[in-house]
Amino acid sequence: MKILYFGGQKSGKSSLAEKKALALTKNKPFYVATYNNSYDDKEMHKRVDKHKKSREDSFITIEEQRDLTKVLKPNQTYLVDCISMWIFNNLDEEEQYLKTQLEELEKIDCNIVFVLNEVTSGVIPFDKDSRKFVDLTGIIGQKLAKICDEVYEVKFGLESRLK
């Protein structure tokens, strides 16, 4: 089963995705953390620490910032949090590179719960990298929605099933 949770910043999508991943397996699921923790961003370090504390011993954490196909294996359950950071980490890659990774993930017989930030509803950004990020988020979001069995939009901690 492939499932997508998307929503705005602090919408509650990660908490709902964690609950879904736990419900999909009797074993301990894997939490694929995509944040590149090498930046000296103290506020983001606090966010990462909060996520770690919220999942405590419920998940086995795997850190992979760029190539998700390296870490996902058959017959397991994964929570990939978050696809937005994965896109950001691969901003220097071509669109097809990211799509190909998703196509490979679709073929793996495993449960994957994806988390994606919704950033495509605003104005077109002025700078090139921000535009590329927003564009890729929309393109990758469409690809994920297509390959996923279930898609949930999250607002204020409430999920709405779209698919």
Rank of each mutant, 00 (worst) to 15 (best):
K99P: 04
L91E: 10
S84N: 10
Y31I: 06
V80K: 10
L136D: 02
L102Y: 07
V71N: 06
E153L: 15
L24D: 01
H51M: 03
C82W: 11
G8T: 12
K13A: 09
P74F: 13
E93Q: 14
L102A: 07
E64C: 09
M85V: 06
K10Q: 13
L22K: 13
K13V: 10
Y97H: 01
K70C: 11
A21L: 07
S160R: 07
M85N: 14
F30E: 04
N75R: 15
Q76S: 15
Y35F: 14
R66S: 07
K10A: 14
L22Y: 08
K19M: 12
F30K: 03
P29A: 12
A23H: 07
N89A: 04
S130V: 09
E103I: 10
V151C: 01
L68S: 06
Q142T: 08
F114E: 00
M44Q: 08
N90T: 04
E18T: 03
G7A: 03
D92Y: 14
S14F: 14
V71S: 09
V154G: 05
I112T: 08
G8E: 06
K53M: 00
Y78N: 01
Y97K: 00
K99R: 11
C82Y: 09
E159L: 13
D109T: 13
K2R: 02
L24R: 03
F6D: 00
Y97V: 05
